[in-house]
């Protein structure tokens, strides 16, 4: 709904925080999802995602959600589906060229981004939408990729440590721990 969408953009900072929490939860759930199988959870998660995001952001389920880089204004609501900023046809008062009764999605995006902590992400050049991902859950994709990256970083560090002290690891494995506790959180934290 248009009015709820405008509300979400007005409260972009709140939604930014909510999204960070959601992402952390999803990443934490990775072992569970992996056990059940990502292909099996895809449909129910996509259904929930569609429900929430259609209500709040008029989500079109492009499958490559970029809401947190676009001020919580979904770029797929732009009739030209622009992913990198407004076109040159915006009407006086900031209304859409194609749908004059609607505010320009990208005018709103920049306003929303200016209220967010990481609003400067709006300046990053985004690739075209991969149309074959339409309808899939981007929540799952993001958390799955993030969890995989974390695992990779962890095993790389483990390997580096073990490689640097091979003898120690052989005689005293506890001295060359494979999984330091702090690695359970995000890399660099």
């Amino acid at each position: 709904m248009y009015r709820i969408r405008l509300f979400a953009i007005r409260h972009s900072r709140t939604f930014e925080v909510a999204y960070q929490l959601l992402e952390r939860t999803m990443v934490a759930l990775d072992p569970l999802f992996s056990r059940i199988g990502y292909s099996r959870v895809e449909k129910p998660v996509a259904l929930v995602e569609r429900g929430f995001k259609s209500l709040l952001f008029d989500c079109k389920m492009c499958g490559q959600c970029v809401l947190s880089s676009t001020g919580m204004s979904c770029p797929m609501n732009c009739p030209k589906e622009l992913r990198n900023g407004p076109c040159g046809g915006v009407r006086p008062g900031g209304f859409c060229e194609v749908k004059p009764e609607m505010k320009c999605v990208w005018s709103l995006a920049w306003d929303g981004a200016s209220r967010m902590k990481h609003g400067d992400k709006i300046g990053v050049v985004l690739p075209p939408v991969e149309r074959n991902l339409q309808g899939s859950s981007s929540w799952l994709r993001v958390s799955r990729e993030k969890a995989a990256a974390l695992r990779e970083a962890r095993s790389a560090r483990k390997a580096a440590l073990a490689k640097s002290f091979p003898e120690a690891r052989k005689i005293e494995p506890a001295a060359v721990p494979l999984a330091p506790e702090r690695d359970e959180k995000e890399p660099g934290s």
Binding site: N84, G85, P86, G88, G89, V90, R91, P92, G93, G94, C104, W106, S107, W110, D111, I122, G123, V125
Partner: peptide
């Protein structure tokens, strides 16, 4: 298009085009 809204973000959009 410098003369149409959102005026304050047009230069930022230009920066993005240069970046691209």
């Amino acid at each position: 298009n410098p003369c149409i809204p959102p005026y304050e973000w047009r230069p930022e959009r230009l920066a993005k085009k240069v970046e691209a």
